[in-house]
Nucleic acid binder design. Structure first.
Lengths: 139, 139
DNA sequence: GATACAACCTCTAGCCGCTGGAGATTCAAG
DNA sequence: CTTGAATCTCCAGCGGCTAGAGGTTGTATC
C-alpha cells in the first residue's frame, strides 16, 4: 500500500511535520485513518491535498483562499469562476507588491551608491532613512 | 514648545499609538519625559527618531536592522560601512523577492488566462495548483 | 470649582503561519 | 524483548503589530 506516516508525508510534500499537524488543526487536511496507537495514516489523496496546499502557499495564497479553493476542488460541479476570481485577486496583489518592491529597490540602490564609506555623520544611508524628503519617489 | 503627547506624535509620524508603545517596549524609542500623571511627553528628537524607524520599516528593514542603524546614527563617529552593509543586504533581499514575485505573476497570469469559465473539473487554476509539473518555470 | 469627556495609562490577548520543545507513548528493526 | 527513532499531545514563542478592558489624567466648558 502507499499509505504512510506523517514523517514520510512531510518529506514527500517538503513540509514540516508540525506544519501538517497545524493544517489539521485549522481544518485543511486530516489523515484518512489512525493506527490503534493513534499515529496518523495518510493515503495518496491526502498527499495530493497537501501538495495542493503547499503549492498554493508558495504562490502566495492565504489560508482562507486555500480553504475556498479546496472546497471548490472538493465539489467539481461548481462553476470555476470563483477559483478564477481568487487567482485574479491574487495576481493583483502580486502586481502591487512588485511595484512597491521596485520603488524600494530604487531607493536602496541610491542609498548604497551614495555612501562614501566615510563616517556615519556623512552617510547617505542614515540620512535618507531620516527623512522622507530625500526619497526620489513616493512610497 | 514643540513637546507633545503620544497621540499627536502618532498623527505626525503616521503611526498608531499602540505601535509607538510597542516600539518603547522593545527598546527602540522612549519619551524624554513623562507628566506627573504618567503621560508620555515627546520632543522633536523623539519625533525624528520615530520617523527614522517608520521610514526604515517602509523600506523593508526588520526591527533588528533598525536597531543597528539607530545605534549607528546615535554614534556618528563610527564608520558607515556597517550602515552600507545593512542597506546592501537589504537590497539583495529585495532583488530575490522581486524575482520570486515575477515568477509568481507569470504563473498566476497563465492560470487566469487558461481558465475557461466552465466547471471546476476543467479549471486550470485548480489543476495548476494540484501539481507542480504544470508550472512553466521553477519556483 | 465641578463636570464632562477625550486622551491617556497598563495589562492581556489575539492576529498569521508556522516552528520548536517537553515529556509521554508507539512502532519497527534486530 | 530491547532499543531507539518516530510519533503523540500540549504549550509557548516568533515578528510586528493591533484591539480591547478597565482605570486614570488632562483640559475645555459651565
Amino acid at each position: 500500500m502507499s499509505n504512510m506516516a506523517i514523517g514520510k508525508l512531510a518529506v514527500i510534500a517538503a513540509t514540516k511535520v508540525q506544519t501538517i499537524r497545524y493544517y489539521e488543526e485549522i481544518g485543511l487536511i486530516r489523515p484518512f485513518s489512525r493506527t490503534e496507537g493513534g499515529h496518523r495514516i495518510y493515503g495518496p489523496d491526502d498527499m495530493q491535498r497537501l501538495k495542493f496546499i503547499r503549492h498554493a502557499r508558495e504562490l502566495g495564497f492565504g489560508i482562507g483562499e486555500i480553504r475556498e479553493l479546496l472546497q471548490l476542488s472538493d465539489n467539481p460541479e461548481t462553476s470555476c469562476s470563483t477559483a478564477d476570481a481568487i487567482a485574479r485577486s491574487q495576481l493583483e496583489k502580486v502586481e502591487i507588491r512588485l511595484e512597491k518592491l521596485r520603488v524600494l529597490r530604487k531607493e536602496l540602490k541610491r542609498m548604497v551608491g551614495e555612501c562614501g564609506h566615510g563616517r556615519v555623520s556623512h552617510c547617505r544611508v542614515i540620512e535618507v532613512l531620516s527623512d522622507h524628503r530625500h526619497c526620489s519617489s513616493e512610497h
